[in-house]
Each structure stands twice: as C-alpha cells, then as structure tokens.
C-alpha cells in the first residue's frame, strides 16, 4: 500500500518559487504534483496536476510549455507534446485524464490539498 497522504492542505513552497507561466514539481508523500502559475487578465491563478505523463511514463509535466487552446488552459508534455487541460486533467488528443489537485496561495505560501 502507498503511504496515505494527509487529508489536509499542505504547504509545499513559497509563492516566490513560482514564476508566471512556468511550472514546478512538488513532492507530497509519494505523489509528484506539477504546479503552474498562469497570468490571466492582469492577475495570476494557480493550477496543480499530476506530474506524470501517461504517454511516456516519465515525470515531466511540470516542464511543459503552458498556454491556451480553444479557451482552455493547457500544458504540453515535453516528450510527445500531448496537451492536458490544467483545470480538469483531460488530454485534448486522447481519451485520457490525469489527476488534478486543489492548490492555493495562503500568506505567501503555496498549499496543496490532495484529498
């Protein structure tokens, strides 16, 4: 069995560790979570998805290019360039969905809820 992840918000890094329109990867228990800061209309929003790219089986999504396609915020996997919707984890090219997580900024810290 995998170690159970706490059912609560966990602090992973400082807000200043995130640069706009770039990702980082955070480790929580056994999970690898890719966190992105997206600049939208003057403000920024945070998104968190699994770091694992199901098509290459490599933990690399935090290193993809972010952007939008047809109005959905997406990241492109750096390996075979599949796009994943940052809000839902859905792959735009294939019938595959990766986990998404809740993320927020709280007092200058970035927190994840893995529920």
């Amino acid at each position: 069995m995998n170690a159970k992840v706490e059912l609560q918000w966990v602090t992973v890094c400082s807000a200043s560790d995130l640069l706009p329109n770039l990702g980082v990867c955070a480790r929580v228990g056994n999970k690898q979570v890719a966190i992105f800061k997206i600049a939208e209309q003057g403000k920024t929003s945070l998104y968190a998805i699994d770091n694992h790219d199901p098509f290459s089986d490599a933990n690399v999504l935090s290193r993809g290019i972010v952007g939008d396609l047809k109005g959905r915020n997406v990241v492109a996997s750096p390996i075979y360039k599949h796009h994943f919707d940052l809000a839902t984890g859905e792959c735009l090219e294939d019938d595959v969905k990766i986990p998404v997580y809740q993320v927020r900024e709280n007092g200058g810290q970035v927190e994840l809820f893995l529920g």
């Binding site: 706009p20 770039l22 290459s56 490599a58 690399v60 290193r63 290019i65 390996i79």
Partner: peptide, 22 residues
C-alpha cells in the same frame, strides 16, 4: 532571461535534450 523562460521547450529551458525517461 526570465521573461523568455516560459517560451522555451524544455530542451532550451534546461539547455539539454530531454530523453524518453525525463
């Protein structure tokens, strides 16, 4: 440069070629 960083493919961002296992 920070303002160009988010534009680069991972290869250019890390100045190295990504392989199949990351």
């Amino acid at each position: 440069k920070t303002e160009h960083a988010g534009l680069q493919d991972t290869n250019d961002y890390f100045l190295a070629n990504m392989q199949k296992d990351g």
